[in-house]
Amino acid sequence: MIDPTDPGFWPGLFQVLLVGTGETLYMVGVALLLTVLIGLPLGIVLVGTERGGLFEAPFGSIWFGHIVNRVLEFIVNLGRSVPFIILMVALIPFTRLVVGTFIGSTAAIVPLTIVAIPFFARMVEIAIKEVDAGLIEAAESLGATRWQIVAKVLVPESLSTLILGLSTTVTSIINFSAMVGTVAGGGLGSVAVLYGYQRYSTIHMVAVIILIFVIVMILQGLATGLARRFSHRGRPAGTRASVPTAI
């Protein structure tokens, strides 16, 4: 039992929250970076290898494109359907192989990234599919290569939707990072479990909730602002719906 009247309580709480927040931001930040690096190309390939897509026939083979599409679909569906708590435990041998241990914030990055990649890849898929096929046609008529179409049309034109998808992804990484805390992953999740749950400190619990809420709100606000900045759809007069706010 922790005693809030103890003179060491508040400095201790501050210290614990500071470390926890730092660990959370570290886990989430690195996981997010890896997620974008892997999930963005994955999402693009996922859309592209569909029938009639940009990469329908990689290396001139429709058959190969179809196989790639099926395999990626399967992996993404698998990653999306396994509950995180199970995935996290099931990944322990893999995490140990990659990081050398399965305890601590660095180790937690592995399951966080692996759960977030399929999630973000779906977001990318949705965003890319929203791009008007006419724009791809226009770029093709100008003699663009497939990669030019990706870099100059697909990604820039879906940027605001991608940013909102990223903000949804980061929110769920934060969510999962707290779950990692329950199995010695560190971060604010650990603080909530070790102090709030196991030692009955309501103050710790409330502080963690407020901190996570603030982090999510800041990221959300940032994403919405950026999305608006990159959307030039002409809000009042445009016939297209304004950018939807991700939750």
Partner: peptide, 29 residues
Amino acid sequence: RRKIGMVFQHFNLLAGRTAQGNVELGLEI
């Protein structure tokens, strides 16, 4: 295809680029 320009019924301009940016797209390519 670079010898053949094409214009479309629904314009097919990139919403994220200015008029000049859209014209530059063809040149970038």
